[in-house]
């Protein structure tokens, strides 16, 4: 089985985000970039599938720090690693890169494309369904367990309120991973150093093919967060305010 796994580099969630001067993007100069957590799980699931039944895993990474994360992927067991070129200092739109991923899936004769179910920059839609639709392959998002039996896949999906649904589908397919069957493994510094010799392939992007798109006019920081509102020290007025705050969020009842 050939597995293509997509790794997207996104701004570190621990960092403070600030707006760029144009007001339409975030200031990326001082940001640390890290692998999208869901993509990390997708990589782990790919390696677990490889260990369970044999597979060739190709990891394709996009964004700042792609090389570093590809070395990590190689250290964890990816057989081939490819960096997909992208526009510098721009957010990674899953809608934009879907055509490139689909083209690569065909070029690598992939039987399975794995990626994280979401990324914090996929405001224009999620990668798995885009790639699935472009390839006309079945796709399932929110996977937290994948078992391959030949070309037949059993995928368990997390739904709200703890409901879990298991599906059966035949490869080729695209899966959006929520959680790997096991937590992503740790790769030691010595293994990373070893993997730093792995050659990294390059791929140039394909045009998205989706002409009509929405545009970001402006970004803003939410009003709340950090400097919270002080409701004061009178229990009765605080209780009144909290009831109305909870009611506004639809949470004033069970």
């Amino acid at each position: 089985m050939n597995i293509l796994v997509v790794l997207r580099m996104i701004p570190d969630s621990a960092g403070e985000l600030q707006l760029a001067e144009d007001g339409r993007s975030i200031d990326r100069e001082w940001l640390d970039f890290q692998l999208n957590d869901f993509d990390d799980h997708a990589l782990e699931e790919a390696i677990l599938l490889k260990e369970a039944g044999g597979a060739k895993v190709t990891a394709v990474a996009v964004g700042e720090g792609a090389n570093r994360v590809l070395q990590m992927a190689a250290a964890r067991g990816a057989d081939e690693v490819v960096a997909l070129q992208c526009e510098e200092d721009a957010m990674i739109s899953s809608r934009e890169i879907a055509a490139s991923i689909a083209a690569m899936a065909r070029a690598k004769s992939a039987d399975l494309v794995l990626c994280g179910v979401q990324s914090s920059e996929d405001v224009f839609g999620q990668l798995a369904p885009y790639v699935g639709a472009l390839l006309d392959w079945p796709h399932v998002s929110g996977a937290n367990r994948i078992v391959a039996n030949g070309a037949v896949l059993r995928v368990t999906q997390e739904r709200g309120a703890g409901v879990a649904v298991t599906y059966e589908l035949a490869a080729p397919a695209v899966l959006g991973v929520q959680t790997a069957s096991k937590a992503p493994r740790y790769v030691s510094g010595s293994k990373l150093r070893e993997a730093s010799k792995t050659p990294i392939g390059r791929a140039t992007p394909e045009p998205s093919g989706l002409e009509r798109a929405a545009d970001i006019i402006t970004l803003r920081l939410p009003v709340q967060g950090g400097s919270g509102e002080n409701l004061g020290g009178n229990a009765e007025t605080v209780a009144d305010r909290l009831v109305s705050i909870l009611a506004a969020k639809g949470m004033a009842r069970n």
Binding site: S94, R95, A98, V117, Q118, D122, V123, F124, G125, Q126, L127, A128, P129, Y130, G132, A133, L134, H139, V140, S141, G142, Q157, E158, R159, G160, G176, L210, E211, R212, A213, A214
Partner: peptide
């Protein structure tokens, strides 16, 4: 969970814009 698979699928096949 369902909407995540539906929205972009339709967007890709119709070419319509999508905002999540």
């Amino acid at each position: 969970a369902n909407g995540l698979d539906v929205a972009a699928d339709i967007a890709a096949r119709t070419g319509w814009p999508l905002i999540s």
